[in-house]
Amino acid sequence: MDLTPRTSSDNAPLAPRKRNRKWKYVAMLAVVVTAGGFIVSQFLTSAIDFYCNVDEIGQRAGCGPNRRLRVQGTVEQDSLKSGMGSTTFVLMFNNQTIDVRYNGDPGGIFQECIPVVAHGQLVGDTFEANRIEVKHSNSYSEANPDRLAQSKAEQCSLLAG
């Protein structure tokens, strides 16, 4: 029995509409595949920059000068200085430190005793960063000025790795 769609004036519009709907999903699939490829390529491109802890600078292969790095550590207490459009601070991890200079204001919740990831290059003994990302820990507690003041130094050393 022939069950092909009707071509009468009543039923004719149904067939092209269904075909159009199918092409809509094909186009959606093409966009999805492109987006997937873009995501993977961006991830791989960003992974080119070695991700080093401060104590790995100059110790681990790839964590040296003359290449872009991502350096992770905690901003040392009383080391943060801002002025003349730049921010300098000392980054520490596992009792090792490195001086960091960043042109601008890091933004976010950047402050002393907070873990950060600095993107940039090692120039001499200073890490010249052009991007700072602030990490936040997985602990959440109520803001309490007294408790904060008492435990700041301790917290800073705990976060240092």
Binding site: Y25, V33, I39
Partner: peptide, 30 residues
Amino acid sequence: TWGTYWVWDPRLTTTAFLFVTYIGYLAVRG
């Protein structure tokens, strides 16, 4: 908190990929 809307970080990237995968799943259903 971080100071940026997006970074190609492992968690963010894999989440975005998961999202795109399921949009693809829905496209295939249609």
